[in-house]
Simulated scan of single mutants.
Amino acid sequence: MADFADTRVSLAGQGTIEAVAVTTAVSGACLASIGGIQVTVRTVTGLSFSVGDKLLIARRGSTYWALAAYSAAPALPPTPPAAGDPPVTSLGDSSPPPKPTTTTGSLVCTPTATSTWRDGSWRTDTGSSTSADTFQGKYGGSSLGRNSGFAFYGSKPRSLSGATVTKATVRLRRLTSGDYGKRSPTLRLVSQSTRPGGFPTLNESTAGPALGVQGHVSPSEVTFTLPTSWGQAIVDGSRGGLCITVSSDDPYIRLAGRSSWSAAWTLTLYWRRSS
């Protein structure tokens, strides 16, 4: 074997160095490669290693000793865990959860019925009891009772169940009846989604838009924005319709029903949904 002292490579002052075993130890020595040069290296008693293992070398005078050995990196990937072994936990950062997908849209709901209640029954003198105009209050000097006008929306709004309502609007048009000045109806939410036999259940209230009579005072027609919570209640099914009514006789107002105007009481629900 070649003697490392015969080479022209100087390792003085390097302390311990690293070599690769070219042979196993025989009679306390082996052949190792340092920087591409094969040299003879003495091995300490009991040191065991294989060809290709890395050796930790120290110099004493002109003799080089292998003090320790450690295996080379495996050429093949480690064997996957057997069935039933606990899963390996990654120590790296986990991937962030995917962002939710948000869908938005609008749903147009025409009323299934527009009707007016007066004196204990649904009026039929102004047309079909399910598409008639809607009245509020009492005509001055009339011996008849007060009017309450209703619009019912059936089951269509509940097709958005689970969605969040972001806006709700309704189309209203005032027709001739009473005076021509601008008057504001009082809007109420109704529990029923279809017209019942008796007087519907009234709930929340809000002031409606100031409208003049069509052809006389403007505006007579409007797309009115309802409280967003009203639209949500109709979608969730706890409410089903709208109403105009007052506890006194005035203001007496007539708003178009389905038979007078195709867009009458059309409810539009704007919504979003995340998944």
Rank of each mutant, 00 (worst) to 15 (best):
A210S: 07
A210Q: 02
S177Q: 14
T223E: 13
W117Q: 00
T16E: 10
T112K: 11
I57Q: 00
R42A: 15
S143Y: 04
D3F: 08
T110F: 12
L189R: 06
A263L: 10
S259I: 08
P100D: 09
G149R: 00
Q214V: 05
S90E: 11
A210H: 00
T266P: 00
L91K: 11
R272F: 06
G140M: 06
A12Q: 09
G231Y: 02
K167D: 15
W261M: 04
A151N: 01
R188I: 01
V41K: 03
S248R: 05
K182G: 02
C109A: 08
T7S: 13
S48A: 12
G231D: 00
E221S: 15
G257V: 10
L269Q: 01
K182H: 05
T24G: 15
L187C: 04
Y139L: 13
L11C: 05
K182M: 10
A25Y: 03
Q232P: 00
R118S: 13
G215F: 03
L187M: 05
C30Q: 00
D125M: 05
G120I: 08
T228Y: 03
L172V: 11
F150P: 00
P98A: 12
P86T: 11
S274K: 07
S95F: 13
S33A: 11
S159Y: 06
S184N: 12
P87H: 08
F199I: 09
F224Y: 14
T103R: 14
A168I: 03
S205Q: 10
G215K: 07
K54I: 07
G15Q: 07
G105K: 08
D125C: 10
T223A: 12
G241L: 06
R273Q: 15
A66C: 08
G120V: 04
A32T: 02
V9P: 00
S115W: 04
T23L: 10
L211I: 03
T169L: 03
A163E: 01
S259L: 08
Y70P: 00
A256V: 12
T24D: 10
I17A: 05
R254M: 08
G61A: 13
L76D: 13
A207R: 02
A66F: 07
T130V: 14
R59T: 07
T45Q: 10
D93P: 11
G13P: 00
P97R: 12
I37G: 00
V190W: 00
D6W: 05
A68C: 04
S142R: 01
A75Q: 13
G92D: 15
L172T: 05
L160S: 06
D53A: 12
A12P: 02
Y180G: 10
S121Q: 08
Q214L: 11
D6E: 12
G178R: 02
P200G: 04
P87N: 11
C109R: 03
L11S: 05
G127W: 06
L55Y: 07
S184W: 04
S129F: 13
G52C: 11
